[in-house]
Write a protein that binds this DNA or RNA. Sequence first.
DNA 1: CTTATGACTTTCA
DNA 2: CTGAAAGCCATAA
Length: 103
Amino acid sequence: MMDFTTHVLEVVRKIPKGKVMSYGQVAAACGNPRAARAVGWTLRRLSLAEETNIPWWRVINNQGVISIRGHWLPAHEIQRDLLRRDGVSVSEDFTVDLKKYRL
DNA sequence: CTTATGACTTTCA
DNA sequence: CTGAAAGCCATAA
């Protein structure tokens, strides 16, 4: 049994290209559908750790919107570009069609 | 062990 | 539709 953090990293790393996953979805994959906040906490730690090996940009909230509040860098802009690079259409409001891209 | 925080989610107005 | 509040989980101090 992996730790919650490790499990989250594994799940996020397994996200297929052209698809997006919500924090709640990732948390559910870890066995705790309510631990979405914990997922965000862990991923935030990753960005700071420079461990960009993980497609954290494919992880968004259940609304299909990039809720990053930009504390250290304009992640929302970078994330939109990365998602577009993956073939995901992102609106100007940083909204993604979960109906199509939600895994 | 207790308190505080956070890239969330859901429900009510 | 938009806005605010409460709830739940994990990590850090």
